[in-house]
């Protein structure tokens, strides 16, 4: 009994070890993996875990940012500083270039989002670099289609997910065998919740872009959500622009990510706020998830993360 108290990992250490194990399985099984980096807290946590998995060696993969052109400037600055600090390779592929080469129209509407177009750019990048494994920061607690997805999720040559034909995934054994042209999406932090991420960030003092913390910002209120004033959204005459103290719970495009009113200026405040909240992360901040009940499932079937 004594032994079991002495040699015991708490939940964050267990989740960390599980994620590092998954990272190393990717390194051991694939020729051309890549880590998808959005600049959000989940992908920043992935980078931190990769450092733990592979240092003092280099990452056996580059980072890939699918740039919609609708970024928060703070996040881009953060991205570049982080990449510089860790000395790893960053590849950026722009949705704008895909739109030009494929002659895709600019999405229309008040909050015209290029979110759906990212899939084209991602699939093009996979094709260009022949990536066989794409590591992403999706979590199963985020959304119910994600709750169904395996940690190693095989996609066909069109990047499509077939939820009815998922490989059984047993114990901690990950089957990464694929045919040429297919790829595997790998989710090392599948079993983490939003709160786990924040507690982990706190424990290891991981730096984040400033927009996660409360700050003053010009916003408009639309159907109960606060959207930052930016060149990427259309502001109508009857929209009321106000300055509010807000923070972001997730980082996506400026055009489709909503802010929340908050006074949380440090991680402890944020953790307290999340514990008290009554709304889910995506429900509160993602304008793009509300389109239909199966919005995420449909996007995944088409190659999205």
């Amino acid at each position: 009994m004594e032994k079991y108290h002495l040699y015991h990992l708490d939940h964050l250490d267990q989740l960390e070890s599980e994620a590092i194990h998954i990272f190393r399985e990717v390194a051991g099984q694939f020729e051309k993996p890549v880590l998808l980096f959005s600049g959000g807290k989940d992908s920043i946590t992935l980078v931190h875990l990769a450092l733990r998995a592979f240092r003092p060696g280099n990452f056996p993969f580059p980072l890939l940012h699918i740039d919609t052109g609708h970024n928060f400037p703070e996040v881009l600055q953060f991205r570049d500083a982080l990449v510089h600090e860790i000395g790893e390779q960053l590849i950026v592929r722009k949705v704008e270039d895909t739109m030009r080469s494929k002659n895709l129209p600019e999405p229309k509407g008040k909050f015209a989002s290029r979110n759906a177009l990212q899939t084209f750019t991602l699939l093009d990048a996979i094709e260009e670099f022949k990536f066989d494994a794409c590591i992403g920061g999706a979590r199963r607690d985020e959304e119910k289609a994600r709750a169904k997805e395996r940690i190693f999720s095989v996609r066909d040559e069109f990047g499509q997910w077939d939820p009815k034909l998922q490989r059984p995934e047993l114990w901690n054994i990950y089957n990464g065998k694929i045919h040429k042209g297919e790829n595997v999406r790998v989710f090392p932090i599948s079993n983490w919740t939003e709160l786990d991420i924040w507690n982990y960030i706190k424990r290891h003092q991981i730096a984040l872009p400033s927009i996660y913390f409360a700050h003053q910002r010009e916003v408009i209120e639309y159907e109960g959500q606060l959207v930052a004033v930016s060149p990427f959204i259309q502001i109508a005459e009857d929209d009321c622009i106000t300055t509010k103290q807000v923070r972001y719970r997730t980082v996506g495009d400026m055009s489709c990510t909503a802010a929340i009113e908050s006074t949380a200026t440090n991680i402890d405040d944020i953790i307290a706020e999340i514990i008290a909240t009554k709304t889910s992360e995506r429900g509160e901040t993602r304008i793009d998830d509300k389109v239909s009940e199966a919005a995420m499932e449909d996007r995944k079937k088409n190659g999205y993360f």
Binding site: H11, R140, D141, K144, A145, R146, A147, K148, P163, K164, Q166, S190, N191, T193, L195, D196, E293, A294, E297
Partner: peptide, 28 residues
């Protein structure tokens, strides 16, 4: 709450494993 796929909701059955998370002060 747990049936995440369209086919599951339509048929009212569970087809594949869904993972759900909750915690109390004692455990995750």
């Amino acid at each position: 709450l747990t049936d995440g796929l369209r086919a599951e909701r339509e048929q009212g059955i569970t087809i594949d494993v869904a993972y759900k998370y909750f915690s109390t002060p004692k455990r995750k």
